[in-house]
Simulated assay, not measured.
Amino acid sequence: MDTPAIGAGTLATTAILITLGYALACSVGPFKACRRCTGTGRRRSPSGRAFRECRRCDGTGRRLRAGRRLYNRINQVRRDGTR
């Protein structure tokens, strides 16, 4: 085999492994910590004195991963199409 073919095969294998790893992460742990409140569910008010619930995560501190959101959307379309 020549070098470009080996490189392309390695790149394709790596991309497949990364994709499968992310899919596994989305199925095992569909939620991640909210980036805005760093997973606490609270943010400081503009004055800096009081705390308020984070609007992005609704005070839970967790957000749905993008891959899981895509998976849920695909399943919803499939369910709606089979009715």
Rank of each mutant, 00 (worst) to 15 (best):
T19F: 10
G39W: 07
A23E: 10
I6A: 14
L11D: 13
Q76V: 00
E53P: 02
R44D: 05
C34N: 05
L11F: 15
S45F: 06
L11H: 14
G81E: 04
N75Q: 08
A5T: 15
A25N: 11
T14I: 13
R52P: 05
L20G: 08
Q76F: 07
T19K: 13
N72A: 03
F31K: 01
T82L: 08
R79C: 00
P46K: 10
G7F: 15
R62D: 00
C26I: 01
A5G: 11
A33W: 12
R56D: 09
S47P: 01
R78I: 05
A12M: 12
G7C: 13
S45D: 14
P46I: 00
L11Y: 15
A12D: 13
M1H: 15
S47K: 08
L17N: 14
Y22G: 10
P4H: 13
R52S: 03
A33Q: 11
G29T: 09
A50G: 04
R55V: 04
G29L: 11
R49V: 08
R43C: 08
A66W: 05
T14R: 15
R35D: 12
C26P: 02
P30D: 03
L24H: 10
L20K: 13
N72K: 02
R55D: 04
C54P: 04
E53K: 06
R42N: 07
R35Q: 12
C54H: 04
D80L: 06
G9P: 07
R49T: 06
G29A: 11
R55Q: 06
R56G: 01
Y22W: 06
S27F: 15
V28A: 06
T10N: 14
I6D: 11
S27P: 00
R49K: 08
F51T: 01
G9C: 11
G48R: 06
N72D: 14
R63H: 00
G21R: 09
T40R: 06
S45H: 09
I74N: 01
S45G: 08
A8I: 10
G39N: 05
R55F: 09
T3I: 14
R52I: 01
A33M: 10
R44W: 13
C37Q: 10
A15S: 12
T14F: 14
R73H: 06
C37I: 03
R36M: 09
G67F: 08
G48E: 03
R68S: 02
N75H: 04
R36Q: 10
G59Q: 03
R36S: 08
G81D: 06
L64V: 01
G39M: 04
V28Y: 12
L70C: 00
G48C: 06
G7L: 15
R83T: 06
G67S: 03
C57H: 02
R36V: 05
L11E: 14
R36G: 00
C26V: 01
S45M: 05
R52F: 04
A5C: 11
S27Y: 14
R83Q: 08
G61V: 02
A8L: 14
I18T: 05
